[in-house]
Simulated scan of single mutants.
Amino acid sequence: MSRPVLWFDFGGVLSPPLPDLFTLFEQKTGITPEQMHAALSRMGDDFGTAALAPIELGAMSEREWAARLAAALAALHPDLDLSRLRTDGFGAQWFEGVSANPRMTAALCRARDLGLGVGVLSNNVVEWKPYWTAIIAPAGRVDNVVDSCEVGVRKPDPEIFRLAEKAAGVPPEDCILIDDLAENCAAAEECGWSAVRFRDDDQILRELSALAGVHLS
């Protein structure tokens, strides 16, 4: 590997871990993580794909998706109070009070300062861009952003890794994915990338430093 390009996922890597985000959302809405996961599972069954896929591919508006989420929650939990759930402006509510993972943004900054390529490779949503980009703003400049809703393909589809390689102008063996989902890491490796699955800050910084050949912690 020559000069590697580190591709950071947003949700669960540059953001706080997903369980923390679900807990924070419960504080805002009264909807528990278990209730959310059950509703998302039902939506996935209805869509025949991942629950977030329609909005992460830009095929459905946030408003319609959130309305379907509310309907799934109501069907599963008829007595659940949904009065605090914002179906119009779901992303604003979801990201309210969310800050970037400071150790991961510091690692991104250090990697960039050491001359490595840095990018964001994320499954994300058109309407959420103002919020998540503001959250990671403390990390400063990145070389490339490949966002599923903008390119029309999402992880773990191999095509998104091909698009990222093209954006960075590097071969697959020069790319390293940092992601919290095993299926995305496996897909990246099948495309010839290296990948490190995020479990906690100490683990990821140790493994990523060894793989990239630089000290990032």
Rank of each mutant, 00 (worst) to 15 (best):
P33E: 03
G97K: 06
V120F: 12
W65T: 11
I135R: 13
A100G: 08
D79E: 08
E34V: 13
H215I: 10
E150M: 10
M36C: 13
L181A: 11
C175E: 01
I176E: 00
V118A: 03
F161D: 05
I204A: 15
S83Q: 12
V153S: 03
L121S: 03
G192N: 01
L181E: 10
P172G: 00
E183T: 10
D20R: 10
G58Q: 01
V151E: 05
A70H: 15
L69W: 13
D201F: 15
R63K: 12
F47W: 11
I136T: 14
R84F: 10
G115Q: 05
M43L: 13
I176H: 00
A53H: 12
L114M: 08
A74Y: 09
R197F: 01
H37Q: 14
M43G: 10
P19N: 14
L6W: 07
V142G: 03
I160C: 03
A59M: 12
L211V: 04
G192T: 00
M43I: 05
L108I: 10
K155T: 04
E190N: 09
D174W: 01
V120N: 08
M1L: 06
I55G: 03
A39V: 12
L163P: 04
M60S: 04
W128E: 10
I204Y: 06
S61R: 10
D202K: 10
A168G: 06
D157Q: 07
P54E: 09
E165L: 00
C191K: 00
I31D: 14
A210F: 11
F161T: 13
P33A: 03
S61Q: 01
S99M: 15
F161G: 06
D179R: 05
D81E: 06
R112I: 02
A39L: 07
S194K: 15
M104N: 09
L21N: 11
R84P: 04
R141Y: 13
N123T: 05
V146D: 07
S99T: 14
D174H: 06
V214D: 03
M36W: 07
A107L: 14
C109Q: 15
C191T: 02
P158H: 08
N184M: 03
D20F: 14
F8R: 07
L18M: 05
A72K: 03
G192A: 01
A50W: 08
L57T: 09
E189Q: 12
L73G: 11
A212F: 01
D79L: 13
A50T: 13
F95Q: 08
D9S: 04
F22I: 14
C185L: 02
W193C: 00
I135V: 14
R84N: 08
S99E: 13
